[in-house]
Simulated assay, not measured.
Amino acid sequence: MSAASAQPAELKKKPISFSNILLGAGLNLCEVTTLGQPLEVIKTTMAANRDFSFLQAMKHVWSRGGVFGFYQGLIPWAWIEASTKGATLLFVSAEAEYQFKKAGLGNFGAGIMGGVSGGVAQAYLTMGFCTCMKTVEITKQKSAGAGAVPQSSWAAFKDIYKKEGIRGINKGVNAVAIRQMTNWGSRFGLSRLVEEGIRKVTGKTNPEEKLTAAEKILASAVGGGLSAWNQPIEVIRVEMQSKKEDPNRPKKLTVGSAFKYIYQSSGLKGLYRGVTPRIGLGVWQTVFMVGFGDMAREFVAKLTGDKPTAKH
C-alpha cells in the first residue's frame, strides 16, 4: 500500500450559504405553524399545571380560545423564534461539528458537540425572550374582569420590560440554555448513532452511500424522541417563566430553587409533567426537518441558485 493511499480523506468544511439560512428559517416556520405550537402549548400547560393529565390540559387549552387556544404565543413570539433559531443552529452547529472533527472527534462525538454548541447559541442569541413570552402568553390569566380587555401579547412584553428590564423578558434563559444544549446534543448525537447502526444493518459501510428517506426519518425520530430525557429542565424553565398565580412559589427563582420547589410540591413525577407531548414534539420536529428537508433543499436551490448543504 502506498503512502498516498494510507492518507485519511481530507476533511472538508461544509460552506454556510444564504440557502442554509433560508432553509433553516423556512423549515422551522412551517414546523411550528403545523403541529409544533399545539404540542408546545399542551406541553407548557402540563408543566405549569402539574396536576393536569394530558386530556385535562387539552380541555384547559380549548377553554382559552378553542382551536386558537392551541396557537397561543405563535404570533409573534414562536414565529420570531422559528425564523431565527434555525439559522443560528445550522450555522453554529455546522461550524462546531467541523472544528471538533478537525480536532479528532468521530461522527458521534462531533455530532454531540456540534449540537451542544448550536443549542447554547440558540438560547442566548434568539430563544431567551421568545420562550419567556410564549410561556407568559400560555400561562397568563385570560379573564380581565367585567368590561375589561385582556392584556395583549405586546402589552405584556412592554409591561414586563418596564418593570424588570432585559432580565425580565429573558427570565429562565439559563434553563433554556441547559435545555437546548442537552436537547440538540442528544438529537444530533443519537441520530448519528442510529444512522451508524442502520448503516451496519443495511451494509452501507461507505460514508458516501446515502441513507434512504425512510432511514433518515427513523434515525431522526429516535433521536428526537429520546432527547426528551431532559424534561425536568423544561419543567424548571416553564416554572421560572410562568405567569400562573402561585402564592407558594418563591419570588426570585433560580434553576436550583425552581428544581427544589417543583420537587417538594410535586415530587419526581412533577419534574416529568408534559413529557408525552414533548416526545411528540421532538419526533415531529426532527421528522419534519428530515422528511421535508430534501424537497425544501431542491426548492431553495432553484430559488437562489445555491445548493443548500444543511442537514436536519
Rank of each mutant, 00 (worst) to 15 (best):
S257A: 11
A258T: 11
G223F: 00
V222R: 00
A228T: 08
M181H: 07
G267I: 10
G197K: 11
S266D: 13
F288K: 00
G270T: 02
R237N: 15
P247H: 06
T276M: 09
K204Q: 13
R273C: 13
F288D: 00
E215M: 04
V194T: 03
I262W: 05
L271W: 03
F259K: 14
S186E: 02
K200M: 14
L268N: 06
Y272N: 02
W184D: 06
Q231G: 07
Q285P: 02
G203K: 06
A214C: 06
W184T: 07
T286D: 12
K252M: 07
T202L: 12
V283L: 03
K252W: 06
R199V: 11
A258M: 12
S265V: 08
R187I: 15
P232T: 11
G225R: 00
K269V: 13
T212E: 04
P232A: 13
T254N: 10
G256I: 15
T286V: 04
S227V: 04
R273P: 02
L268C: 12
P250Y: 03
S265I: 08
Y272D: 01
R249I: 05
I236V: 15
K260P: 01
E239N: 15
D246K: 02
G270D: 02
P277M: 04
F188W: 15
E245W: 09
S257L: 10
W229V: 06
K210R: 10
K252Q: 13
Q241Y: 10
A228P: 07
K244F: 05
A258H: 08
Y263K: 14
G225Q: 01
Q285V: 08
E215C: 06
G274L: 04
G256V: 15
L253E: 13
W284R: 03
T182H: 05
L271Y: 02
V201S: 13
A219Q: 00
N183H: 15
L211H: 03
E234M: 14
S265G: 09
Q231N: 14
A214G: 04
F288G: 01
G280H: 04
K251V: 09
N183Y: 11
N248F: 09
N230V: 08
V201M: 13
K251E: 10
T254P: 06
P207T: 10
V194I: 12
A219G: 01
L211P: 03
R187K: 15
E234V: 12
I198A: 06
G223R: 00
M240Q: 11
R249N: 05
Q264D: 15
G224L: 03
D246S: 02
E208M: 09
F259A: 15
E209P: 00
M289K: 07
Y272A: 00
L268G: 05
E209V: 14
I262C: 12
S220P: 00
I217L: 03
